[in-house]
Design a protein around this nucleic acid. Structure first.
Length: 134
DNA sequence: CTTCTCACA
DNA sequence: TGTGAGAA
């Protein structure tokens, strides 16, 4: 039942980040690997945590937010507070993305108008080639 | 190979 | 939020 352990590089490459990044996360307090002397030893729990960190990032949360959630999850005194906190953050992120979505749709609309305008302009200024062909 | 620190975007 | 470089 010996648990598989990892060095920074092993864990990092396995999860598609650099060793530098993993150390960076540790420095920020998101990871707390064991130490053998001063070299880091990562256990499976660290790997799980890192996976959670990376997922949090994909969803657009800051390392700070991810750390808060991880800490709450680890401390785990009253789980209600934990879920409330997560719900709040998730809802905030959803609101943020919806706002961006609106802005994006608006921008796409403007670009489409401009595209049609440019297209019409192109038709007015017929190239010589086309003209001679008639 | 690993560690840390300093600078930089 | 990371990276690059240099030193140990």
């Amino acid at each position: 039942m010996s648990e598989t352990l990892y060095t920074v590089t092993q864990l990092a490459t396995e999860l598609g980040v650099t060793a530098r990044t993993v150390r960076f996360y540790e420095d920020k307090g998101l990871l707390t690997p064991q130490r053998a002397g001063n070299t880091r030893i990562f256990a499976h729990r660290d790997k799980v945590r890192l996976i959670l960190i990376l997922r949090g990032k994909r969803l657009g949360f800051s390392l700070r937010e991810i750390k808060e959630y991880l800490d709450l999850y680890a401390a785990d005194p009253t789980q209600r507070e934990q879920w409330r906190d997560l719900l709040k953050k998730v809802q905030g992120r959803i609101d943020q993305l919806v706002d961006q979505q609106k802005a994006l749709i608006e921008t796409l609309g403007e670009l489409e108008k401009l595209r049609l305008y440019a297209l019409a302009g192109l038709d007015d200024a017929e190239p010589d080639k086309t003209r001679r062909a008639r």
